[in-house]
Structures are given as structure tokens and as C-alpha cells.
Measured scan of single mutants.
Amino acid sequence: QIFVKTLTGKTITLEVEPSDTIENVKAKIQDKEGIPPDQQRLIFAGKQLEDGRTLSDYNIQKESTLHLVL
């Protein structure tokens, strides 16, 4: 699982696999929060994550925290 922290300070927990794409993660966030993926920007280690890449591409491991910017 990974954590996604929103600007409001809320933390969302997501069940993911390293092979999941960023697009996939955004879809999971939409399921939980109702935020359309095209409004979501995910930041990890100061980098904006691209939809077509996977979590493992960015070396995002379990218990990692991503930041969600709208």
C-alpha cells in the first residue's frame, strides 16, 4: 500500500502493486475521493509523475507517500 497526502492534509491509503501505472493510481484516487484523474497531479520526491509510467519506474515502494496537487 502507499499513502497519498492531499493539500488539505488528508491522507488516503491505496492498495497498489509496483506494476501499477500512475494512471491506474489516479483512477483509484477517483474511486475513493471522486476527483477526476485529469485534475490530479501526483508528486513524489519533488517530481511530477507521468501517467504512462509505473510506480516501480519511480522507485515508489510500499509505505511511500505521494503528494496530490489539484
Score class of each variant (00 low, 15 high):
1 Q>R: 13
1 Q>V: 15
1 Q>M: 13
2 I>T: 01
3 F>W: 06
3 F>N: 05
5 K>T: 14
6 T>A: 06
6 T>D: 08
7 L>S: 14
8 T>N: 13
8 T>S: 15
8 T>Q: 12
8 T>P: 05
8 T>D: 15
9 G>S: 04
10 K>V: 09
10 K>F: 10
11 T>F: 09
11 T>H: 06
11 T>Y: 09
11 T>L: 14
12 I>V: 06
12 I>P: 00
13 T>K: 08
13 T>G: 05
13 T>H: 07
13 T>S: 10
14 L>Y: 02
14 L>T: 01
15 E>S: 11
15 E>H: 12
16 V>T: 05
16 V>G: 03
16 V>N: 02
17 E>F: 11
19 S>H: 12
19 S>W: 12
19 S>A: 09
19 S>Q: 10
19 S>R: 07
20 D>I: 05
20 D>V: 04
20 D>A: 07
21 T>A: 05
22 I>P: 02
23 E>N: 09
23 E>I: 12
24 N>F: 14
24 N>S: 14
25 V>H: 00
25 V>L: 12
26 K>G: 01
27 A>I: 14
27 A>V: 12
27 A>Y: 13
28 K>S: 04
29 I>D: 00
30 Q>S: 11
31 D>F: 12
31 D>Q: 15
31 D>C: 14
32 K>W: 06
32 K>H: 10
33 E>R: 05
33 E>D: 05
34 G>E: 04
35 I>G: 02
35 I>D: 02
35 I>L: 06
35 I>Q: 03
35 I>V: 08
36 P>L: 06
38 D>R: 10
38 D>M: 10
39 Q>T: 09
39 Q>N: 09
40 Q>V: 10
40 Q>E: 02
41 R>F: 14
41 R>S: 11
42 L>E: 00
42 L>S: 00
42 L>G: 00
43 I>A: 05
43 I>L: 11
43 I>H: 12
44 F>E: 02
44 F>W: 09
44 F>P: 00
44 F>Q: 03
44 F>N: 03
45 A>G: 12
46 G>H: 06
48 Q>E: 15
48 Q>T: 15
49 L>S: 00
50 E>V: 08
51 D>R: 04
51 D>E: 08
52 G>D: 11
53 R>Y: 14
53 R>V: 07
53 R>F: 14
53 R>I: 06
54 T>L: 09
56 S>D: 10
57 D>C: 04
57 D>I: 03
57 D>A: 05
58 Y>V: 02
58 Y>E: 03
59 N>M: 08
59 N>W: 05
60 I>D: 01
60 I>M: 04
61 Q>R: 08
61 Q>E: 11
63 E>H: 12
63 E>G: 15
63 E>W: 09
64 S>R: 03
64 S>D: 15
64 S>L: 04
65 T>Q: 06
65 T>A: 04
66 L>E: 01
66 L>N: 01
67 H>R: 07
69 V>H: 11
69 V>R: 10
69 V>Y: 13
69 V>L: 13
